[in-house]
Design a protein around this nucleic acid. Structure first.
Lengths: 210, 210, 210, 210
DNA sequence: CATGAATGAGCATTCATTCAT
DNA sequence: GATGAATGAATGCTCATTCAT
């Protein structure tokens, strides 16, 4: 799974052999599946090692604790999610187009990888610092994009100008996350692009009658 | 706590005496505190009964299980949150004003009752059905408000007109929830009204340069 | 139920009013049903009082404890069982005829009142003294009957004459109990009289080829 | 204890190492002692593991639940009891001699292993299916022996011939079980062989005067 | 590195019994 | 007598973690 590309770097105990690297990879994938399907508390180390096809004790060759794998996983998934959206947005002609593409990509990504969504959100209750990091990074990138676009005159200044950018970033991300949950996770009754159309229209045109 | 006003109705085992009603109330308040502070999994029934000042077994006079109190609590809190916002919005001259007031009220409410926010969000991982109910109710009310305002010409039609209302409702709620988390729960570095100003300006004026 | 005819005499706390006697009777019947259906350990005082249609606390107006009702019940049932068999045997022309009638009656009784069988047998693990009393009484009566019949020359002396009577009584009762279990409780694939025919033929004619 | 010889085969979770097999054996022996002394409901898993000299959790490495060990134990004991009687009977010149030897052996066995008797009988109230299996196996073997002996003309046909064999088997087993209880468990005031003499005389010569 | 048996703290839940009303 | 809320000891079971092999 691509979102585990940098996973090895998160495992606390660096494997020295090729065999070790393979085992670590399998454990991470197994953990993603176990946590994604059962949630952090229902997930069992045993469940992870059975999925990975290794003995129970092997888990502790690579991770200090249950929480540690979970944190490693959340970090990887955070990175993967942000990378995916960033990638999707590349080449967009302007900020509003980028918004639309990014949002559609996020919803589609959530639909394809529901476990990522769930695991990241559950981090709120298991490893709050990692959860915060995730959204702080996301928001910071977003804020920069908004600021840059504003600088280029691509988008309106909005209330409070630059000072308001962070708030707008939070607003836009909250919007995306909930649309991801609703249209990615819960029901697939609308295409991601269509959802993005409606939502981006909302924030680009605004509700005020003119 | 006002949000427990209808709580007695959620306790599965109806108390028959006045004394019983009082005990149930105390248990619910204790549960709210325990779950809010420690989270569902760290929370202990023992912790609840100690807070309530009753014996351990008394808990089971009123609830079937740990999960059951939690569900009862989430339902109460969902009701309380929606009621609070609805109340705050009363008398707003138009939809956009209502949006602003409602959002500010929500952020302030989250700031005052962080345990409500946490408990409701954790429901996602403990009692997903109740969590869905919560947002489905919220969205439905929101959607109706948008449709009505659109009908009165107070707000623009937006992409896909009526069909798009549900999506806009999700978008606006997601926005609110995240702003509540950021400015209500995480850091209080901006007044709820100011946050609401920026966010509502975003969705009323839109980002498009004119 | 007839086997509770003397029940009131076993309840430790004698009711003084008519209302009290009625409540006691209902509690005993409820207890018989509860213990019979669920077994001693699964049975709940609550289950008994619900069946009896009284409040939980009322139970303790009539009985000291769960074990006490159980003991009272076993004593009543022991009495009822022995009385039933004794009654059935009355007027039998001789001992072997009495054996046959008594055994058939016991199997039929077990079939009609499975809870009696179960409750008495479970006493072995709950109130062993009462259980022993039950069979000691049964055996003693049996032994006397055998001795009398032997004295009248109605039956053979058997090994060890009078000294052997007690052993024979145990053997015959064991036989009966197991036939009661098999043909009264487990499967009703043979009429009590036919079972009695086979078993009594066994002990009257003997297995030796002549 | 010899009756646990096949015990390992009943433990649900097969141990993979020698050490594991030893622990399983010790747990089964401890369980037999605990259940035998305290009865199923009074017995505690903790009591079992303390006797076995292992930690509490170790129990659950080998058994799913308290009930499961109990069932495994009853099955082992059923096997052991039947094997013991079968062994004792070997080489008996004819059926009546075999009856006598078997009965004496059963009483002596009960005297030596009271916990076996108690555990099997308590199964009636804890795991009825296993209890039924036990006696159905016992009866079936018994019935076959009777049928064979009848075929060889060693014993009389008895009422209903072959059809009556099952009933006779139940009768004879019931007899044995009660004599085991009385002279094996309750009081040892008569030697097993003497008890067997009286009882077998009863069923071989019969009560009818000739 | 891998294995899997062993550990034991931790906790939800049950239910007989008490007692104030 | 009757009621039902309150009590709290008791215990089965889970599972992350350790460690000897």
């Amino acid at each position: 799974m691509s979102y585990l590309s940098q996973a090895a770097a998160s495992g606390e105990k660096e494997p020295r052999t090729e065999r070790g690297r393979k085992t670590l990879r399998r454990l991470l994938e197994a953990a993603a599946a176990e946590f994604g399907e059962r949630g952090y508390h229902e997930a069992a180390i045993n469940g992870i090692t059975v999925r990975a096809g290794v003995a129970l004790g092997t888990f502790y060759t690579y991770f200090e604790s249950k929480e540690e794998v979970f944190r490693a996983l959340v970090r990887d998934m955070s990175r993967a999610t942000r990378a995916h959206v960033a990638e999707a947005v590349k080449g967009a002609p302007d900020r509003l187009a980028a918004e639309r593409t990014g949002l559609a990509a996020f919803i589609a990504f959530t639909r394809r990888h529901p476990e990522l969504y769930r695991i990241i959100e559950e981090a709120q209750f298991v490893a709050e610092d990692v959860y915060r990091e995730h959204y702080l990074s996301f928001v910071e990138a977003y804020r920069r994009n908004l600021a840059a676009a504003r600088g280029r005159g691509q988008i309106a200044d909005g209330a409070r100008g630059e000072e308001g950018d962070e708030t707008r970033a939070w607003a836009l991300i909250g919007m995306s996350v909930f649309l991801g949950m609703r249209y990615g996770l819960w029901r697939e009754d609308m295409a991601p692009e269509d959802v993005a159309d409606v939502a981006i229209d909302l924030v680009s045109e605004g509700l005020r009658t003119r």
